[in-house]
Nucleic acid binder design. Structure first.
Lengths: 210, 210
DNA sequence: CCGAGATCTAAGCGCTTGCTCAGCTTCGTT
DNA sequence: AACGAAGCTGAGCAAGCGCTTAGATCTCGG
């Protein structure tokens, strides 16, 4: 039952790598604003205001509004990929590793749904070069999940006719958690993660041997 | 194998109820622009331009840009709900009706992915009253799927611990097809629909009796 | 053939946007 | 004590936004 990523506490705990402090405050403010209203509906004045600064201060730390989005997207995608790779490299059966991957991946999307919403749904707002960079990360994300599923098929654990198609469906299901998850909802991120791990094992045709 | 909604042909075939012709052209142009760039990144000049008209012409047929989005969203949600209700009211086992619902619902989201993208992902851009109206339609959508699943559980066809949670997951999976579906992709809308119907039957723990 | 209503355009209004810049303050180093 | 770099602000620019208005054109019943 050991899964990665246990981060209680404030919304900006996860952005420790962003320095200096003013730049981090601006980035956290941007995440909140982008998640609430969307990238294009967010003004630089709004971001600066949330960070308690004047509109001009933003441009000391970031060249453009798009660079802010890119930094958020990059860090988020790195983290998501890291979570999946950690699960992939663990010891054990493919079914255990797949369940682990889904559990921690979904938990991240629920716990950090504000960030995840920006990371997963504002891709089109990136400029061409930045988007290409992120798309490459997403390819690796997909490849990681596909590898686990293919290993499960090879080991006879899973019953999957189309591993690629199933991978797309599984990731789509997990990612979309960021869209509907509500903090006021019935379930905690942990519970949703466990529930989704079970759903995904069903999708790949895994039968628990009792 | 009989499922609803078979609409080949041009992108504006589905908007027959919108009259007069200029209003329909504007609406189709808006769907394309919103799907490509997102609501907030789309200008009224762009919409009018795609429809081959001057910027001012838009305001003869629609009071605001938001009203355009509302009309699109309303028609799309009506259609989606109609598809699910048709499947619910059909004769047969719950598993057949659920598979049918998913198959036609997913096919619509793949075939009309441009429209569906706007319908499903631009909800937040609606004004408060319009959003409330659409949210109500989505509640009914969810209730329809939940009813089928609950009937399957009651009939002993499905093995589902949490029908509400499963309903959310199933709809989330199906809706997200609109985001990733690509016309150039390997699979046709029909194939994706069939594939997803199978996945969903697995998710609800249905065992085919051979 | 007329005239009223519907449809459309050219021009542009008022406002907001992303972003810039001159100058003020703060602060670590000498 | 003096200084230069870095952080930040107030003011504001050029461009683009949603939307309006005055008037030209089209349509069609009488």
């Amino acid at each position: 039952m050991s899964t990665a990523e246990q981060t209680p506490g404030g919304e900006d705990v996860a952005w420790g790598e962003v320095a200096p402090e003013a730049a981090r405050r601006l980035l956290v403010a941007a995440v909140e604003a982008f998640a609430e209203r969307g990238y294009h509906a967010t003004t630089t004045r709004d971001i600066a205001g949330r960070a308690g600064m004047s509109p001009a201060a933003l441009y000391i730390h970031y060249k453009t509004k798009e660079e802010l989005l890119h930094r958020i997207s990059r860090i988020g995608h790195d983290r998501a990929l890291e979570i999946l790779r950690a699960a992939e490299l663990r010891e054990g059966a493919a079914s255990d590793r797949l369940a682990d991957a889904v559990r921690s991946f979904v938990r991240w999307h629920a716990e950090r749904h504000t960030t995840a919403r920006v990371v997963q749904y504002e891709l089109d707002a990136l400029g061409p070069e930045h988007r290409a960079e992120i798309v490459e990360l997403r390819r690796e994300t997909e490849a990681t999940v596909r590898r686990i599923i293919e290993e499960g098929v090879a080991a006879g654990e899973f019953d999957v006719a189309d591993p690629s198609g199933t991978t797309v469906a599984v990731l789509s299901l997990c990612i979309d958690v960021a869209r509907w998850f509500n903090v006021q909802g019935r379930r905690t991120p942990d519970e949703v993660g466990a529930f989704y791990a079970d759903l995904v094992l069903r999708m790949v045709g895994y039968r628990a041997q009792k």
